[in-house]
Computed example of a mutant assay.
Amino acid sequence: MSKIHPTAIIEPGAELHDSVEVGAYTLIGPHVKIGAGTTVGPHCVIEGHTTIGRDNRIFQFNSVGAANQDKKYAGEPTTLVIGDRNTIREFCTLNVGTVQDRGETTIGNDNWIMAYCHVAHDVQIGNQVVMANNATLAGHVVVEDWATVGGLTGVLQRMRIGAHAMVGFQAHVAQDVPPFMTVDGNPLAVRAVNVVGLKRRDFSAERIGVIRQMHKLLYRSGHSLDEAKAAIEALRGSEGGVADGDIDVLLNFVTAAKYGIVR
């Protein structure tokens, strides 16, 4: 307990690994669990049925696990689950889920969440996601692995941002953003393939080439959505099949879109 500042309040029932560090004037509620190596800065409130994994770094002035902002919420014991090795900068608000959905807000591993971000109820954030300052995710949003959400961006409830997508600064996301694409603006528009991000993740030139072809078929060919999907399906086996998994990722995402994709 030597790593707990004497002014911090750890309520009975909270479960903290012996290696957890807690800063001054932080409050941790009775249903909170925090794993080994996690540090919590001063002036934070971590409450609700919140589980936090290993080696996270939570900076000062964060609200983690608070009641969600859904008017239907009646205090049900819904949850917030945060994985390992996440960085959560100052003044973020991360809320628990609702019984109208899965009852759980989840944040995966190795995410970088910058200052003043909001993660609403039932949001699902994958792994290696970046949220820049003041990015706001409304309820039930899904952000897949390796996606980037630009600063001052607002994401409407129930929207999805696909894997490896890049959402530019101050965007208004009111439709699903397909994997691998770079989008920005209000109204939102697809600009190109997120080539810089893919190269940083060691995508080969051949894989990127096939992804460029998928982008062209979906956005530059004049095809209807069904025609574009059929043409993308026909790319299987090209370049020795190196991008067949990427074709699956894109087609599965587009097929599952309930509210349409940015197009």
Rank of each mutant, 00 (worst) to 15 (best):
N95S: 13
N109V: 06
D145E: 03
D202A: 12
D122C: 05
D122R: 02
A189V: 15
V190R: 10
N86W: 06
G151V: 05
G185R: 10
H121D: 13
V149P: 00
T87E: 12
T87M: 14
T106S: 09
K199F: 09
Q170C: 11
W112F: 15
V183S: 10
T182I: 05
N111G: 01
F91M: 03
N86V: 12
G103H: 08
A120S: 15
V196R: 05
V130H: 08
G150P: 02
G126V: 02
F203M: 10
A120Q: 07
N111P: 04
T93L: 04
N186K: 10
V143M: 02
M131S: 03
F91S: 10
N86S: 12
E90C: 04
D145W: 05
I88A: 00
L137N: 08
N111K: 00
V141L: 05
T136K: 03
G151M: 09
T93N: 15
V96A: 11
P179Y: 07
G151W: 07
G83Q: 05
D101F: 09
A132F: 10
P178C: 07
G185T: 10
F203G: 03
G150C: 06
I88G: 01
V167L: 11
L137E: 06
N86P: 04
K199P: 00
A147P: 01
N95A: 09
I125P: 03
P178S: 07
T153W: 02
H164I: 01
A205T: 14
H164M: 15
T98M: 09
D101W: 07
N111C: 15
T182M: 14
Q100T: 09
A138E: 10
M166S: 11
Q128F: 12
Q128L: 07
T87L: 15
D184R: 14
E206Q: 14
F180H: 08
A120L: 10
F169M: 13
V142K: 15
A171D: 11
H172A: 14
H121S: 06
E90P: 01
S204V: 10
N186W: 03
E104C: 10
V123E: 11
V143P: 00
E90K: 08
V141E: 05
A171M: 06
Q128R: 11
F169T: 12
H164C: 06
H118A: 00
F91R: 03
D202Y: 11
H140V: 00
A205C: 00
F91T: 04
N133Q: 07
E90Y: 08
D122H: 06
M131L: 15
N133P: 04
W146Y: 15
G154P: 00
V193S: 05
G185Y: 10
A138F: 03
V190M: 05
G209M: 03
A205D: 15
T87K: 09
V129N: 02
R158W: 12
M159C: 13
L156A: 11
I107H: 02
G209F: 01
H121M: 09
R160I: 04
T182E: 09
H121C: 08
T182G: 08
A132Y: 10
M181V: 14
V96H: 05
D202K: 12
W112G: 00
M131V: 02
